[in-house]
Structures are given as C-alpha cells and as structure tokens.
Design a binder for these strands. Structure first.
Lengths: 232, 232
DNA sequence: CGTAAGCTTGACAATACTCAATCTCTGTGG
DNA sequence: CCACAGAGATTGAGTATTGTCAAGCTTACG
C-alpha cells in the first residue's frame, strides 16, 4: 500500500514494526456510490483509503446529502485519538476505491500501545488534518466568491495530492465530475463550469474531464487567498 | 459559575468532587474585541466561558478574519481528549465576557485522572459538540439559501442557548450585531437584514437589537431543514 | 457506430451585493 | 429632563453574481 504508508510515514517517523502493521491490513474494493454508514460502519471501525476518492457526506432525514469534505488516497477515518464528530458522518465512495480495514490500528490507538507510538501519532495527524480541511472549507464557503472558492478548493486538492506524491508536473488526476465539486462548494454545476472557464482563460488552472492542470500555482494561491499555514 | 457547571453536568453526571474543581476556577473579564491568539494562548491552555459570546476566528496573513463558529456561555475550548484543529484558531470576544482558566482541568484530562472521569467525559463532549457545530456550519453554508441559512443558524443558537437554560418563553438575548451574524454566514449585512425582515413577516423569528424571539420553532426548523439529531 | 454521462453554452430569472441615505435606538453630558 | 452623538438597523436603487432551464456538444466505451 504505497500511498498510505507514504502518507503515514510523512506524518511521523514510523518504525519498521509500524510499517509491518500497515502492510498486514487487508484491502477490499468499493464500487463508486457505495455508502459507508456513519452510524454503524464508521462508528466502531477505522479505514484507510489506498486508492480512489471518497466524500464525507452529511445525510439529512429528508434524503438530501451535503458533502462536507473530500477524502483522498492516503486519507482515512476513525483513527483519531478522541472521538471526532466527522466520524459520525457517512462516507461515500465517489470512484472505485481500494480501502483497508484499519480497526486493528484503531485498537492500538485505544490501548495507547507504546510500541506503536509513532503510528498512533501519524493517525492522530490524519484526523487532525481532516479537521483542518473542514475548517478551511468553512473559510472558503463563507468568505470567498465563487471564483476564489473554486481556486481555493483546487489549491487544497493540489497540495494534498502533492503531499502523497500524486502530482507530477503540476498535474493530477481528478476522477470526480464537476457536479461533485459544485455540490461540495455550494455552487450549481453550470456556474462552476463558467468559473472553470474563467480560471482557464486567466491561465490559473485547467480541469477538463478527469484531470487538473495547475498552470500558475502562485497566482492560484494568491487569487484564492490560500493560507498555506492552515493546510498542514 | 452556574452556566458552566450546568452545562458540564448536562453532558455527564458529575461528582461533587468534579463540581468542586469547577467551582475552584478563577475567572477574569474580557472586553469586547479581545483576541485570544490561537498559536499561543489557546495552544497550551483551556478556557471555559461563563458569560458573554465569543467567536472562533480564522486569521489570514492578509489581515482578514473569518468567523468559523460561535462560542456561547457554557462552551469552552482546549478541553478535547486529543488535539482538535479548531483549537489552533483564535478566539475573539464579541461581548464583555467572563471566562475561567481551565488549564487545571486540561491537566486532569492529560493525566486521564480516573477520579474525574465524568468531568473529563463532559469536556470531551464539549469539544465534540464544537466539531459538530462546525460541520453543521458547512452544511448551512454550502447547502442552503440565505433565508434557510439564517433560519438554520438562529435555530442552532436557540437550541444551544436553551440547552444551557438561557431561553425563556422562546426568547433569548443576542448581544451581537447583525453584521457579525452576516459575517459568520457569508452574507452582507444589508442582505442579512432583508432576510431578517422576511423571517419576521413570515412569523418565524424576530431579532431586533439584542434579542431573538422565536415565534414558530417548528416552522423555523422546517424551513431550515434543521437536522435535530445533528445538533447534539 | 450508438449510447450515455458529463461538459459547455445561451438566455433569462432570481438571488445577493454595493452604495448611500435615513431611521432608531441607547447612552451621555448639560 | 432633554439634546446630542454614535452605533447599529433599515430601506431604496442600481448592479453584479449566481441559479435555472434547455439545448447542443464531446468524450469514453461497448
């Protein structure tokens, strides 16, 4: 599981024993559109995403869904040191995904296993980062125009994807339709598309189907008023 | 400290010893507009709010502030069981406040003091609730029109204030200007005012300066598509 | 090829913002 | 007790942003 191990190792200096634990987890595949229910599956379990994109979704009783965050390869959930409110939300696979059941790691966390303190630290960082992304999402939604908001979102995706080694030459795969991005950002699909066109013509970023080309990162971050310190 | 003790007691069945710890904390007064810096004051300390309203604010290097959440009497920060990303943000007093330094409680949490397990549990709930409010804020911002958004926000304030006993007869004091509400919800002050007028004329809620009168809670919750389960 | 999903565009309507003026409180000093 | 000042609330008019509807286009894939 290259991405996950890389990710966790980047958050804390893991021991070879930690890496063995990670390598020992067994994966399973998720079809796009699979819902991991927040009140059951994600409550007492933990998961790491090896590949594919998922979304945190708040389900309301009237059947509507609101995306509150995106989970990328290398991310996970249920791994915080204390209950985190986000883990009560459901997780929806947006693409085909390979995930692993990390409940064994969760148990190490529960036991505060001294032998795996670094692994535990890395998992806590994982949860902490998801919280940070959620707070950044609030800043985006409440304090930015549609144009800035999209720039900010793409910038975050870029940085997060880069941090797990999935960006090369300013380019990364984005296996989600524009409509999903629009939903996450509280915009209509049509308007998102118009904003995307302007971002493209302004030479900041281009995202045709399935891929993002960041053309001018500095300008993108500037337009988005992206606070680098708030991202990690 | 009636409100704080009441709040914590409502989150876990505190022992008399726990209550003594709470009663022993010494308070101080904050003038409106005081900033508790996220990178220093709130990093290694913990605080409980006895009276007054505060805001979580994300400060960006360019000097702008974005409110990410509201802290009410009975709320606190720095009291989670694991680092919570919100505690890296600053806290701004919106009104005169009386707060107490709860670092001693934080230390009990750090030590996992078995004698105070109930108090610790209550504090964890406090942190968990702030996370929940943040996630609900995302839902509000991304998935609601201005009208619904304001209704949703007022509904949350109502429920939170009611839970600490500060609502009587559908009425509670709101010592913050409309502009602050507008900032939190990503609206202009003028537009918030227009929405407020419509909410009033629709008989849902009225909030002239300093006070909120909830006229029709059921309808307010319905209009807001407020998910009661997500509030506590 | 044919189909379906998703991207793009145009035209129009609704929502929300800005600017600027006026009004209403609340507290303060005379 | 009253006049005044200042903060905040309210309104109008005009503009900008964003949404909706509907149609055409492109691409991936069988």
């Amino acid at each position: 599981m290259p991405v996950t191990a890389k990710r966790l190792a980047s958050l804390a200096s893991l021991t070879t024993d930690d890496l063995k634990v990670i390598a020992g987890l067994k994966g399973r595949t998720l079809k796009p559109g699979t819902l991991l229910d927040g009140s059951s599956e994600t409550a007492e379990s933990a998961t790491l995403i090896l590949s594919g994109w998922c979304a945190r979704v708040a389900l309301t009783h009237d059947g509507t869904r609101q995306i509150t965050g995106i989970l990328l390869p290398g991310d996970g959930f249920g791994l915080g040191g204390a209950p985190w409110a986000g883990d009560r939300l459901s997780v929806l696979s947006l693409t085909p995904c390979v995930i692993v059941d990390a409940t064994s790691i969760r148990n190490l966390i529960r036991l505060r296993s001294p032998a795996h303190s670094k692994l535990i630290e890395a998992c806590h960082q994982l949860a902490w980062l998801e919280q940070t992304y959620a707070l950044n999402h609030i800043v985006r939604l409440a304090g930015r125009t549609a144009y800035e908001r999209v720039a900010h979102f793409i910038a975050e995706l870029y940085i997060r994807m880069r941090d797990v080694g999935l960006v090369s030459d300013g380019t990364f795969a984005t296996p989600i339709p524009q409509q999903v991005v629009a939903d996450a950002l509280g915009l209509s699909g049509v308007h998102l598309n118009r904003v995307a066109r302007k971002l493209r013509s302004d030479g900041l970023v281009d995202f045709p189907r399935g891929v993002v080309y960041v053309r001018d990162l500095d300008m993108l971050l500037k337009v988005a008023r992206f606070d680098g310190a708030a991202a990690s």
